Computed example of a mutant assay.
Amino acid sequence: MTEKKFPFHDHPLAYEKLDRFSCILCKKKGGFGYFCDKCYFWGHKECIKRSLLHPSPCKHSLKIYTLEALGYAGDHCHFCRDYLLDDFFHCLICNINMDLKCLKDPPPSSIYHPKNHMHMLTLLPRVVTFTCNACSVEGKRNPYVCLECNLMFHKDCIYLPRVISINCHDHRISRIFHLGLGDWKCGICRQKISCSHGAFTCLRCPSLAFHLKCAMKDDVWDGKEFEAEPKEELEDELEDDSEKEIEDDSSEEEIEEP
Rank of each mutant, 00 (worst) to 15 (best):
4 K>H: 07
54 H>N: 07
182 G>S: 09
69 A>C: 06
77 C>S: 08
85 L>Q: 11
161 P>K: 04
4 K>I: 15
158 I>M: 10
107 P>S: 02
195 C>H: 10
42 W>I: 08
19 D>Q: 10
250 S>N: 13
85 L>A: 09
56 S>M: 06
201 T>K: 14
21 F>S: 04
48 I>P: 04
113 H>L: 11
139 G>E: 07
6 F>C: 06
153 F>Q: 01
129 T>F: 06
214 C>A: 10
21 F>M: 05
33 G>V: 04
207 S>T: 14
222 D>V: 06
10 D>L: 14
248 D>G: 02
93 I>L: 01
6 F>L: 10
211 H>W: 03
73 A>K: 05
57 P>C: 08
46 E>S: 10
131 T>L: 13
158 I>F: 10
224 K>C: 07
143 P>S: 09
15 Y>F: 11
69 A>S: 15
50 R>N: 14
213 K>P: 01
127 V>K: 13
153 F>H: 04
165 S>H: 13
215 A>V: 01
176 I>E: 01
8 F>M: 12
79 F>S: 11
186 C>M: 05
53 L>S: 12
6 F>P: 05
133 N>Y: 07
146 C>W: 02
65 Y>P: 02
222 D>I: 05
195 C>Y: 09
163 V>W: 03
188 I>K: 06
53 L>T: 09
230 P>F: 09
122 T>E: 11
38 K>L: 15
131 T>I: 15
144 Y>H: 01
106 P>H: 08
23 C>F: 04
31 G>R: 07
213 K>L: 13
107 P>R: 01
241 D>H: 05
189 C>P: 03
123 L>K: 01
144 Y>D: 00
94 C>D: 15
190 R>A: 12
56 S>C: 06
131 T>P: 00
179 L>F: 06
241 D>M: 13
250 S>L: 13
119 H>T: 07
252 E>K: 12
92 L>K: 10
6 F>M: 10
118 M>D: 08
101 K>L: 14
39 C>Y: 06
84 L>V: 06
156 D>F: 10
127 V>T: 14
24 I>V: 12
135 C>H: 00
18 L>Y: 05
62 L>S: 01
174 S>D: 05
145 V>A: 06
239 E>I: 12
187 G>P: 00
182 G>Y: 09
25 L>Y: 01
88 F>N: 00
121 L>S: 00
36 C>P: 04
95 N>R: 12
78 H>P: 02
57 P>Y: 04
52 L>S: 05
230 P>M: 09
87 D>I: 12
27 K>W: 05
238 L>S: 03
58 C>V: 05
91 C>H: 00
114 P>L: 00
167 N>R: 12
238 L>I: 12
12 P>Q: 08
70 L>N: 10
153 F>S: 01
110 S>D: 09
35 F>K: 09
152 M>E: 14
176 I>S: 01
90 H>T: 01
105 D>C: 07
244 K>M: 13
35 F>Y: 15
55 P>I: 09
116 N>A: 08
40 Y>H: 11
211 H>S: 06
137 V>K: 12
